[in-house]
Nucleic acid binder design. Structure first.
Length: 484
RNA sequence: GGCGAGUUGGCGGAGUGGUGACGCAGCGGAUUGCAAAUCCGUGUACACGAGUUCGAUUCUCGUACUCGCCUCCA
């Protein structure tokens, strides 16, 4: 297979991907803080890195890619929600993780190999902080442990920032116990109602960044291949991860390739919590937008470009997928994805280019190739991506995901399966009535029926032999009352 | 203020130092009672200025504009 090229933020250009160990390709992606439903912006890196996971498995083998994505389940936002609702923190995080799995499964994202929770790695974090204190990269002050950014000369290298430049732009109040305004917290004290753990520095909890360093070390080692996340995490989160990890483990490289996805906007505007114009993946699913359509839209723009989420894109993606699903229905995928599609993905994950190549396959009538290629993007699968892994490798890795995905997918594959048999009978009745009208050449009546069905969400397609129909969105039988 | 990204046809969106993807829409045609769906055909695009070059949308510099990060956020 073609060599994979990836744009490495660390050096700001594309380079050929060469894993440390081709039999154990290791990738870490920053996961969610679990205090609320994932919004559409959260879904972009999930889907993008899912495609990378699939591509790496395609090249290096199904069992040779170790993909880790964490759950941050200790955080002040979670504490705030607990205080607000009076609920137990663990209840909130467990519930949110469940939602996250449901929603990301619906997008056809494979579960990573490991999904560590921060609270299960406190011990490793404490150990790492101890090492940083011992080797002079961290200091204690007023119950806090802080990382000394001046002790690490490469600080700022990933994001291209200089310490003095950033100090000049300082605009938040700085805690006076910091030696440098940019020093960041590794450990902080907890009061009675906050979650906390005993540590050499007293009862407290970890700072913002240490969990990723500790979990990556534990699960992937001192040096691993790929670290991914949103561009907004480049600074300070990823910068701080590098500083902590490289200072605690000077013999390691931490991550060799840094990948950052650009941000998502909605209808041309920045999406943010403070502006309140964001919506969740669940909102879209509940509106009847299939997970596969969401996935397709997210993949239709290259991951390093800002993407604008629009209704129009949703409609176009729906039309394309409906067409492709129609032509690949019941077709056995070819043994391998088309080389044109693989090549596009291998070129820094050019998913938009890959989709263009898939359009060409469709035009050429290579439906088996289309189906096999789509699988590499996690599209056109039998259960929205989960079974796809079975098609191109051995077995689905998370059969439990079927439970969540299957009903949704059934709805998408053909809207009819969301109908009750009574509703089907009713639609069939009117289709027969229309056929009768047509045979009498009473086209006025035939058109009246067709329009009423359309209003109810049922669109008809006549062929020589019969009339087929599709259900668009939700069937609304009340609209058929007009026919009586 | 610091750092970074972008500007491609009506819209979306790849890519390339020389033959100008791909999709949607539009237009023409096939098909249809009419539609829908499907199929075939069809496009006057590369922000602006200068430079390098035989040749630039593609490289370099500048200008304008847009956007993101630096603050919770992917």
């Amino acid at each position: 297979m073609t060599e994979i090229k990836l744009y490495n933020t660390k050096i700001r250009r594309k380079e050929v991907f060469a894993p440390i160990d081709p039999d154990n390709v290791r990738m870490y992606v920053c996961g969610p803080t679990v205090y609320d439903r994932a919004h559409i912006g959260n879904a972009r890196p999930v889907v993008v890195f899912d495609v990378l996971f699939r591509l790496l498995r395609h090249k290096y083998g199904h069992d040779n890619v170790n993909y880790v994505r964490n759950f941050t389940d200790v955080d002040d936002k979670i504490n705030a929600k607990a205080a607000e609702t009076g609920r137990d923190i663990r209840d909130i995080t467990d519930e949110t993780i469940g939602w996250y799995h449901e929603d990301m499964d619906a997008l056809g994202a494979l579960r990573p190999v490991h999904e560590p929770r921060a609270t299960e790695y406190i011990e490793q974090m404490v150990t790492m902080i101890e090492r940083l204190v011992a080797n002079g990269h961290a200091y204690t002050a007023e119950g806090h442990v802080l990382f000394d950014v001046n002790s690490y000369e490469a600080y700022g290298a990933l994001s291209g920032r200089k310490l003095e430049d950033m100090r000049a732009g300082e605009r938040v109040e700085v805690a006076d116990y910091k030696r440098d305004p940019l020093d960041f917290v590794l450990w902080k004290p907890s009061s009675g109602d906050q979650p906390g753990w005993e540590s050499p520095w007293g009862f407290g909890r970890p700072g913002w960044h240490i969990e990723c360093s500790a979990m990556a070390l534990e699960l992937l080692g001192e040096s691993f291949d790929i670290h991914g996340g949103g561009l907004d995490l480049q600074f300070p989160h990823h910068e701080n991860e590098i500083a902590q990890s490289c200072c605690a483990n000077p013999s390691g490289e931490f991550a060799n390739y840094w990948l950052h996805n650009e941000m998502l906007q909605v209808e041309g505007k920045k999406m943010s919590k403070s502006l309140g114009n964001f919506f969740t993946v669940r909102d879209l699913l509940d509106q009847g937008v299939p997970g596969e359509v969401i996935r397709f839209v997210l993949l239709s723009t290259h991951y390093r470009s800002p993407m604008d989420w629009t209704e129009k894109k949703v409609r176009e993606a729906t039309a394309t997928l409906r067409k492709w699903r129609g032509m690949t229905k019941g077709i056995e995928p070819s043994a391998n994805p088309a080389s044109t599609v693989v090549d596009a993905l291998a070129d820094d994950l050019n998913t938009a280019g890959a989709i263009a190549e898939m359009h060409k396959l469709a035009t050429d009538g290579d439906v088996a190739g289309l189906k096999a290629s789509a699988a590499l993007l996690g599209l056109l699968g039998n259960t929205m991506g989960v079974l796809v892994s079975a098609a191109i490798s051995s077995q689905p890795i998370w059969p439990s995901a079927f439970a969540n995905v299957a009903p949704l997918n059934a709805f998408w594959v053909d809207g009819k399966s969301s109908l009750s048999s009574k509703e089907i009978d009713r639609i069939d009745y009117w289709i027969r009535a229309r056929s009768d009208a047509k045979s009498r050449r009473d086209f006025e009546e035939a058109d009246r029926i067709r329009e009423a069905l359309l209003a109810a969400g049922v669109s008809l397609q006549d062929s020589f032999l019969e009339t087929n129909y599709e259900v668009e969105g939700v069937f609304d039988p009340s609209k058929l009352e007009a026919l009586k």
